[in-house]
Computed example of a mutant assay.
Amino acid sequence: MKRVLQTLAFLAVLGAAAGGAIVFGGLYNVSAREGHWPGVPFVLHTTFRNSVDLRAPDPSVVPDLEAEGMVALGAGHFEGGCKVCHAAPGQERWAIPTVMVPHPPHIKEAVGTWSPAELHWIVDEGVKMSGMPYWPATRTDDIWPVVAFLQEVDGMDADTYGELTARPSVPEGAPPDLPYCAMCHGIEGRSGNPQIPRLDIQPQAYLEQTLLAYAEGRRDSGIMHVAATRVAPAELLNLAAWFAAQETAEAPATPVDDLNLVTAGEALAMRGTKEVPACTSCHGPKAEPRAAEFPRLGGQSAVYLAQQLRLWRDGGRGGGDRKNLMAKAAQGLTDADIAALSAWYAAQPASR
């Protein structure tokens, strides 16, 4: 028994000496040109696969990935944040990603057989010891549009991708970064995508504070944080001025047919307390003059409104100077309340 223990101790010392020589003596060649030793890629990829399988969220949390506008919103983020490494459907990767170790696979190869829940975890967490970053926000609901896009990648061609991510021509004199924003929001701030807020109804002061909050990370969104940090702060203010100067279209962003839901929402919107004023006093219609820095909600997308109310209620939303007031206002809302409020505001004529 003593000899066995001595042998084990000797092997432990030998292993520690070998490890020290590799780590401190520089014996391991970290050159990407040399690549990994044989068998290492298999070990790493198998570890990666099993790690994701263990930690991915339950499939029951996956929302409706086929909902209107989901794929387009995800494609817009992919165009600005992911294409540089993974290429787009119908395109080839450029030179740099192909010589990285490990190299980022083409997006069709990267999606592979991963489930939606697994893709969400990968996009959210990133991959250690690779070039895959983690999601640049703590809220993770806006990862689902990216997952919706990834689910469509296998059958997508270059023309379809081009239609999803086209940057429209802009009028002469428009801010130079407007084509990038208009890819999702439209030239006049009305994209028609229910997942994306319309901007033509918002006061300039609100747009300014919101864009700066996204850029500085004070308002949480992986999609908008990436978008806002690609533009200089001064240009963000120019974009806010542009959208605020557009003529407001009165037509609602999304039609609402359930009149009972609208009626219930009106009662909620008009109701206030000593601690929390009525929704209409700040958000309109006919908001008080002091509310210039609050978003207008009349004619906004019901889908977007419901998403934001859930974030306020569940503690996933911030960005404004009065965020504590909104958190207090939303904390007691049920899902039915949120649906009703969203329906009523979405049914109102849009106005600034």
Rank of each mutant, 00 (worst) to 15 (best):
A18R: 04
V99C: 03
D159E: 15
R218E: 14
P179W: 06
P97V: 00
G76S: 12
R290C: 07
G26E: 14
E172F: 08
G189L: 08
A269R: 06
T334E: 08
P59R: 12
Y134P: 08
A16G: 14
G81Y: 14
R290Y: 15
T210R: 11
D141E: 12
D177T: 06
A330L: 03
Y304K: 00
G272F: 09
E163G: 03
D64N: 14
G26S: 12
A18H: 08
R167L: 09
S130A: 07
G20M: 12
A264K: 13
V40E: 14
C279H: 08
G222M: 13
T165W: 07
E92I: 08
L14K: 04
K274I: 06
Q91E: 15
R139N: 05
Y214N: 00
A340Q: 07
G25Q: 10
S221A: 11
G26T: 13
D337I: 01
S169T: 14
G315P: 02
A253R: 09
A278L: 01
V170M: 11
P63E: 13
A336G: 04
E247L: 10
I187P: 03
D314N: 07
V146T: 15
V13M: 15
A232T: 04
G319V: 02
V231G: 07
N29V: 14
P105C: 06
R317P: 04
A18P: 05
C82E: 05
E79K: 13
T280R: 13
A110T: 08
T47Q: 11
V52F: 02
W135G: 11
R290W: 14
H225M: 09
G162K: 10
E275C: 00
P41R: 06
L11G: 15
A347Q: 09
G25P: 09
D335H: 02
S221W: 03
A343H: 09
W114Q: 06
S191K: 01
C85T: 01
T98C: 02
V43S: 13
P116N: 08
N193G: 00
S60A: 15
G173H: 05
R55T: 09
V30N: 13
S342W: 06
A292N: 09
T160S: 12
S351F: 02
